[in-house]
Simulated scan of single mutants.
Amino acid sequence: MRKFEFIGSAIPGCFEIKSFFADDARGRFVKEYNQAEFVKHGIQDNLKEVFYSTNKKGVLRGLHFQRGKMQPKLVSCISGHIWDVVVDLRKDSPMFKHWQSFNLTGDGCNQVYVPVGCAHGFLTLEDAIVLYKCGEVFYPEGDSGIRWDDPDIGVGWPLDKVEGAGKVVLSEKDRSLPFL
């Protein structure tokens, strides 16, 4: 059994969270969210929307954020393996334009809290199911992002861990996002 563990990151307000879980002969029981535990660690967003994506190995999604009604996110990989990235876009932050990565796996029962003002993206290192719990609903008119390969940010994507390195699977939307 493991209790919740909140691990701070270089990006203010961004946490890696190791979820509560208990194993026995039947399998594993995982609790990804408990409001009181999150409030104890300064995370007071109320979840308003939950969705998931299925992703083949080599898919790169991001770097996404929402303008106007910004979305704090709690992101977990419930099956497979992703290399998750948070980029601080808050101009008043000491970590403005800095990024941090996290390895999220279904077996690891860990997740990342992405605060408002940060962009989020990931590269799938194995086929994966990614779950997003958001503190604001999705508003198509506020949907935005920056290019995954923005040289001013310089995310060090582990493309060598994907078969056919350099041939990531991108949506047309992500391919045409602007640089910061």
Rank of each mutant, 00 (worst) to 15 (best):
K3C: 14
K3E: 15
F4K: 13
I7T: 11
G8R: 05
G8S: 08
G8K: 08
G8A: 07
S9P: 05
A10M: 10
P12M: 08
G13A: 10
F15N: 01
E16A: 03
I17Q: 06
K18R: 15
K18C: 13
F21G: 14
F21W: 10
F21L: 12
D24F: 09
D24R: 07
A25S: 06
F29Y: 09
V30R: 01
N34L: 08
Q35K: 11
A36D: 11
A36C: 06
E37N: 04
V39H: 11
V39R: 11
G42I: 07
I43R: 00
Q44M: 15
N46P: 02
K48Q: 13
V50E: 08
Y52L: 11
Y52I: 06
S53H: 15
T54D: 14
T54H: 15
T54L: 13
T54S: 15
N55K: 10
N55S: 15
V59C: 11
R61M: 09
G62D: 07
G62Y: 05
L63W: 05
H64T: 08
Q66L: 04
K69W: 03
K69P: 02
S76F: 02
S76N: 02
I78G: 05
I78H: 03
S79N: 13
I82N: 03
D84A: 01
D84W: 00
D88G: 01
D88E: 01
R90M: 07
K91P: 14
K91H: 09
D92H: 08
D92G: 06
S93N: 07
M95A: 09
F96N: 04
K97C: 05
K97R: 13
H98P: 04
S101Q: 07
S101H: 10
N103Q: 08
L104N: 01
T105G: 06
G106E: 13
D107Y: 11
C109Y: 07
N110E: 09
V112Q: 01
V114T: 01
P115V: 12
P115E: 04
G117Q: 03
C118T: 01
H120W: 02
F122R: 04
F122A: 04
T124C: 12
L125G: 00
L125A: 00
L125H: 00
D127L: 00
A128K: 00
A128E: 00
A128Y: 00
I129C: 08
V130M: 06
V130H: 02
L131F: 11
L131G: 06
L131Q: 09
Y132I: 14
K133V: 14
K133H: 14
K133E: 10
C134Q: 15
E136D: 02
V137S: 04
P140S: 13
P140G: 13
P140Y: 07
P140C: 12
E141V: 09
D143Y: 14
S144M: 14
G145I: 14
R147F: 07
W148L: 11
D149T: 03
D150C: 05
P151H: 05
P151Y: 07
D152W: 14
G154W: 07
G154L: 12
G156A: 13
W157S: 02
W157P: 03
K161V: 02
G164C: 08
G164H: 10
A165S: 11
G166R: 11
G166Y: 10
K167F: 12
L170G: 13
K173A: 15
K173I: 09
K173V: 13
D174Y: 13
S176G: 10
L177W: 07
F179P: 02
F179R: 10
L180R: 04
